[in-house]
Each structure stands twice: as C-alpha cells, then as structure tokens.
C-alpha cells in the first residue's frame, strides 16, 4: 500500500527547508540528540562543512547542511529526523525513525 503523501511534493515553513537554497535539498536533517555521545571526528566526515565546534559541543549549520546523513552514520548521538511535513503530516513517519 502506498504511503499517504501530500499531492504536491512540498516543504512547509517551520521545516527549516526554507532557510536557504542548500537546505531545501533536505528530506531529513541531522539532530544532535545526545551531545555527549558525538564523536568529534565526525567533523571530518561532513562533505559540506556543516558541522562545527561551539564551546566544545558539535553543532550543525542547517543553512549549509544538505541532509546526506553521513554524520548520523559515522557518529553516535546524531539522529536524522524528517525535514518537512507537507499538508498531511510527517508522512506517517515517526521522528527519529531513520
């Protein structure tokens, strides 16, 4: 059975996809859920340079991030969450399920 989706593939405000042209590419965005578990070496894996140090904590510049998900694969503590909601909700996908 096909998933219930918005008829027109869109990204709505509040989804962060409106921040910049780069971020409009994203389907998912990285969310640092457990900062203490993030491996600092993950900085070297981001192809866009979207990860940075901020007072000893790894953070994400979402205006640059394209949502490739490499960081979430390479480090604990980072989870990819659905970027946008469309008109019917988050596609029935629970946040953090990917």
């Amino acid at each position: 059975m096909a998933k219930e989706l918005p008829i027109v593939p869109t990204a709505t405000p509040g989804s962060l996809a409106e921040i910049s042209a780069a971020s409009s590419w994203r389907e998912y965005r990285p969310e640092i859920q457990e900062p203490g578990k993030v491996n600092p070496k993950v900085l070297f894996f981001c192809p866009e340079g979207a990860l940075f140090h901020e007072e000893g904590i790894i953070a994400v510049d979402l205006s640059v991030c394209k949502g490739c998900g490499i960081c979430a694969v390479e480090s604990d503590g980072i989870v990819m969450v659905p970027e946008y909601t469309g008109v019917l909700g988050i596609f029935g996908v629970k946040e953090g399920s990917k």
């Binding site: 096909a2 998933k3 989706l5 008829i7 027109v8 593939p9 869109t10 990204a11 709505t12 405000p13 989804s15 996809a17 409106e18 409009s24 590419w25 994203r26 389907e27 998912y28 949502g67 970027e83 946008y84 596609f91 996908v93 990917k98």
Partner: peptide, 19 residues
C-alpha cells in the same frame, strides 16, 4: 512560503510515482 519539489528520498519517491 514553502519549498516545492524538494529532494525526495527513496523512502517516498516510489510512493509519489504510485499516486
């Protein structure tokens, strides 16, 4: 404002095509 035709992951592309 909203983004239109944003990148769609393999999780959803086929579903859009099905519809």
């Amino acid at each position: 404002p909203q983004g239109v035709n944003t990148v769609t992951s393999p999780d959803f592309y086929m579903d859009y095509k099905f519809r």
